[in-house]
Amino acid sequence: MKVTQAEFIISAVGPDQYPDDALPEIALAGRSNVGKSSLINRMINRKNLARTSSQPGKTQCLNYYRINDLMYFVDFPGYGYAKVSKTQRQAWGKMIERYLLERDPLQLVLQVVDLRHPPSKDDIMMREWLIHYDIPTCVVMTKADKLPKSQWQKHMKVIRNDLQLTSSNPMVMFSSELGLGKDELWEVISRYALTTDEVGNPQS
């Protein structure tokens, strides 16, 4: 999909702040520093609309980005960062759980994991939760450029097994640096969030 317009809308902490225009929403979940902001920026061809940070755990709200007036990317707080207080982690967890269970415009969750490492306990918990509630999910494996191509399949197999992925579960290998996987991921997102006409005419 050709992105012609992208803008940050709001950092929301509850349903009363969520947009009310009913556009489809694509949520991004993953541990801190897995590269969600870089992924968003690469997908929308912007360098710093989604702000990247060297400080894990900085994103503390649901950050909404509107794309082509057709959909939203909703960036979740990163999970699994030890220096965030237990109380804060619990508050984030409740916010995310409420969103995932109650948000009607949600069409797809992109679970973002680091291709270089086996899924963490938090990654596995998130995956099991998404399976339990039957929420459509695409696993995006970032930082592929940090690994030799000869190791890609080996690492993908570990992630596939640890996250209980079947052949019907979408998986996309991604590199924000190289743009690898960008078109493939847009195809997956479009299947869940856009009509055929919208895919062909992103400004409609």
Rank of each mutant, 00 (worst) to 15 (best):
R51T: 05
R51H: 03
S53G: 03
S53H: 01
S53V: 03
S53I: 04
S54Y: 05
Q55P: 07
P56F: 03
P56N: 00
G57T: 02
G57M: 10
G57K: 14
Q60Y: 12
L62M: 13
Y64D: 06
Y64E: 12
Y64S: 14
Y64H: 11
Y65T: 12
R66T: 13
N68E: 04
N68K: 03
D69M: 03
M71W: 11
M71F: 14
M71I: 05
Y72I: 05
Y72R: 06
Y72A: 03
F73Q: 07
F73V: 10
F73Y: 12
D75E: 15
D75I: 06
D75G: 05
F76L: 01
F76S: 07
F76M: 12
P77F: 02
P77D: 03
P77L: 09
G78M: 02
Y79K: 03
G80Y: 06
G80C: 02
Y81V: 00
A82P: 08
A82S: 11
A82Y: 03
A82T: 10
K83E: 06
V84A: 15
V84F: 00
V84W: 00
V84C: 14
S85H: 00
K86M: 08
K86N: 14
K86D: 09
T87E: 07
Q88R: 04
R89E: 04
R89P: 01
R89H: 08
Q90D: 14
Q90C: 05
A91V: 00
A91L: 13
W92Y: 09
G93E: 01
G93Q: 06
G93F: 00
K94P: 01
K94E: 08
K94L: 04
M95E: 13
I96Q: 11
I96W: 15
R98D: 09
R98I: 04
R98F: 09
Y99W: 15
Y99H: 15
L100F: 14
L100Y: 01
L101T: 07
L101H: 07
D104N: 10
D104C: 05
D104R: 12
D104L: 12
L106F: 01
Q107M: 14
Q107L: 11
Q107Y: 02
L108T: 00
V109W: 08
L110C: 12
L110G: 15
L110A: 15
Q111F: 06
Q111S: 09
Q111Y: 07
V112Y: 08
V112M: 11
V113N: 14
L115M: 12
L115Y: 13
L115A: 13
L115W: 13
H117D: 05
P118V: 00
P118Q: 03
P119A: 04
S120G: 10
D122F: 11
D122P: 02
D122A: 10
D123V: 01
D123S: 08
I124C: 02
M126I: 04
M126A: 11
M126F: 09
